[in-house]
Design a protein around this nucleic acid. Structure first.
Lengths: 206, 206
DNA sequence: GTCATATGTAAGTAACTACTTACATACCTC
DNA sequence: GAGGTATGTAAGTAGTTACTTACATATGAC
């Protein structure tokens, strides 16, 4: 068994890319095998069926929420700087998982349970970490009173929509030309300071 | 030509629903015709091919951005109340267009140009209106200085992600039990007032 | 009543797809 | 060199799909 593991992985990689481009039905076993540099027969010998290959593809992704690892570093920063680091990290990890994100979007109906599970691992886990971050800062009175869970949803939602619009819908590479930092900074500013003017005149106008 | 228009519309409606459930490849012409209550042959007589039916499906959606119509009403409200109305209206119109939203998500790769066009009409048009709203209030000093375009992206992004998570990923009906108003209120509060505590102590902590 | 229009029934076709079977070959281990 | 393991070649199968052809039927307009 020299390179059997490598073969299996190459097939899964090819499948991940192809399914993310053409969808589960559009990605044929023949083309997946061809892109992996193996025969169709080899694909079936490894996975038995297309469906099981797809399950393996979904199952291989494990999201040790990387955010957890950078939180110590974040805790040493100011609130705004911390959010900046979190925001950029989140977007970069979305970018790394882009094929999987696309599969999640297209294949929710085809494989609801597994896809939702992935979604949970990817988004909800991150949200939990962020929620605790907010709650901690609220105790220290750095942050005002608000629902930390909804706030985490809001912050990640802004970023996720940004990612989907630019990378997936428009096909733009957000990592080029320092756009990422600049845009995140703008979003963080809004999230930290809100939009109302500071003099408390937020009641009525006209 | 008694009910020829009705037939064509029924086919498009059936196709919209089926494609949103199973994707373009997963929705067979036979099942579409069956759901529309016609023969497969009738479908092909009307549209010539599955591809052209799909184009018709996408083309039929016209988004007179309904937000534009409610803006006069919004202008009479306070900033927060205005955002509340805008937010709820946006979510409700997403909910109405849910099948189309799902198609947009799944079929970006299959039909990039047309789908992007729809996306623009649906999201970007709304964003423009919101951007002008912000810019107007900034002139009146009701709002502080910030990039109105990114702010519009942020606000709609929060709402869109909320919609996608609850309605599409989790299959929850957001219109039930007053959840909609309550959640929008929470998001609006965050967007208006931000998250930092009011006493300006937003520099450092620990 | 004739004619055009819209739809139906029935049968079929060519292409493709996931998957299989039978047999051969290369490589590694012992 | 014997045998196990991973892969390849070649051919094929059963099912499905988009789409077609030929013929019949109903309906409304004039």
């Amino acid at each position: 068994m020299t390179n059997t593991v490598a073969t299996k992985d190459r097939i899964i990689d090819a499948a991940t890319l192809l399914v993310s481009e053409k969808g589960y039905l559009g990605a044929t076993t023949r083309e997946i095998a061809s892109r992996a540099g193996v025969t169709e027969l080899t694909l079936f010998r490894h996975f038995g069926s297309k469906e099981r290959l797809f399950e393996a593809l979904l199952g291989r992704q494990m999201f040790l929420p990387r955010l957890k690892e950078i939180m110590p570093k974040v805790d040493a920063l100011s609130y705004e700087e911390g959010l900046q680091v979190i925001g950029e990290g989140f977007l970069l990890s979305l970018k790394e998982r882009k094929p999987l994100i696309k599969i999640m979007h297209s294949e929710v109906n085809h494989y609801p349970d597994k896809v939702r599970k992935i979604y949970n691992q990817l988004i909800d886990a991150t949200r939990e970490v962020l929620k605790d971050y907010f709650a901690g800062l609220q105790k220290k009175k750095v942050l005002r009173a608000f629902g930390p869970d909804m706030a985490a949803k809001a912050f990640l939602g802004m970023l996720f929509s940004y990612f989907r619009t630019e990378e997936i819908m428009r096909g733009v590479d957000i990592t080029r030309g320092g756009r990422l930092s600049r845009d995140v900074r703008e979003l963080v500013d809004l999230f930290v300071n809100g939009t109302a003017s500071r003099n408390g005149a937020k009641r009525r106008h006209s």
